[in-house]
Design a protein around this nucleic acid. Structure first.
Lengths: 201, 201
DNA sequence: GTCTATAAATCGATAGAC
DNA sequence: GTCTATCGATTTATAGAC
């Protein structure tokens, strides 16, 4: 897991990369029990170090959380590229498939789950309301050239968030165990409807 | 709010119904900041009493939470009656409309929001996974006579939970401000699809 | 770079006076 | 029935030894 570089001169920066071990442990704790439920002590214990070291490297609990939330992917890039390029009548399928591909990648999951848990925790509302929705999702709708994106994208978000919540956080069967193809078959038509189908009013 | 009965003999039970004031304050705190975020002291302060009184009336924090979760309605009765009686092709619309009617009632909202917040808090998963879904939702699907209810109802739940989350917890516009009719128009076709439409596999 | 020791705040819960 | 006082357990965070 830790790449040792024997030819290195001078003092080693940290031992076998304690810093990264702390961050990984923090991500898993945040994903497992949320921000409020995570204690610095538990993170330190999971990383096999003392609690003071966590503060030493990452400052306050808030700072550690921000560091743990650093996503391996830029959702704007990945989603926009996959969804906007191609036929608009298949955008729903591409969006669901891309979402699942990112979420099913074990490298991404802890940070993503921690992020969604934070959104659903009291006080985390702005992350979705003022962040992901207007900054990532609505612009995608605009670039797709659909009408009323500020209504269509929240409708879409309500379905995608519900799926994410049940599959990855609450772990409801059979949703949690279905493969990506089956989920795409189930959800793509609904997402497509929100993108280009009829609207109320 | 408090019915005074002047002819009553003997010592009055509590003052102007402190017990109910504590419960109402607890409901609002649990709905506002969740179970973990709620402190006995904050409940007591909101009710204008001392913290020890809360323990005196309701025992532990868990007991208080259970008392605060007591729903004014039995979801099984309300949902089953509204959804099962009538044409199966309109069941989606009746389900969405009934859900919204219950949720938009100010008397129900604090307890319902507190309940969903608990579901979305780490450790609350069994409430939905082993409670609401198999006890309330799947039986409704069975009584409707649809095929594969154990797949259809989780699909349906993912959409309804997403709507509930965005409208009442995260408060995302325009979902939060739309009236029930507009929401029914937007979501009933999707819910109906999950009930009686095509499935993957 | 890593740890011990501890400060300072807050929590749930209890005992007991009035 | 209501409150004061307080215990004991946890928490984040810091200071400083090694």
């Amino acid at each position: 897991m830790t790449s040792v570089r024997p030819g290195r001169r001078g003092r080693r920066p940290g031992s076998p990369d304690t810093r990264a071990a702390i961050l990984a442990a923090a991500r898993e704790r945040f994903a497992e029990v949320g921000y409020a439920g995570t204690t610095i002590r538990a993170v330190a214990a999971a990383a096999g170090v003392d609690g003071a070291l966590v503060h030493h490297y990452y400052g306050s609990k808030d700072d550690l959380f921000l560091a743990a939330l650093e996503l391996p992917v830029d959702p704007r890039e990945v989603l926009a590229e996959a969804v906007v390029s191609g036929d608009r009548d298949d955008a729903g399928e591409r969006l669901v498939r891309t979402f699942l591909a990112v979420w099913d990648d074990p490298d991404n999951q802890p940070a993503l789950i921690a992020l969604v848990r934070r959104v659903l925790e009291p006080g985390g509302e702005p992350l979705l309301r003022d962040g992901f929705l207007p900054v990532v999702l609505v612009p995608i709708g605009e670039r797709l050239g659909i009408d009323r994106p500020e209504l269509r994208m929240p409708l879409l978000a309500s379905q995608v968030l519900g799926l994410i919540t049940l599959r990855y956080l609450v772990v409801v069967e059979p949703l949690a165990s279905m493969d990506a193809d089956a989920l795409v078959a189930a959800y793509a038509p609904v997402v497509q409807r929100y993108l280009t189908g009829p609207l109320p009013g």
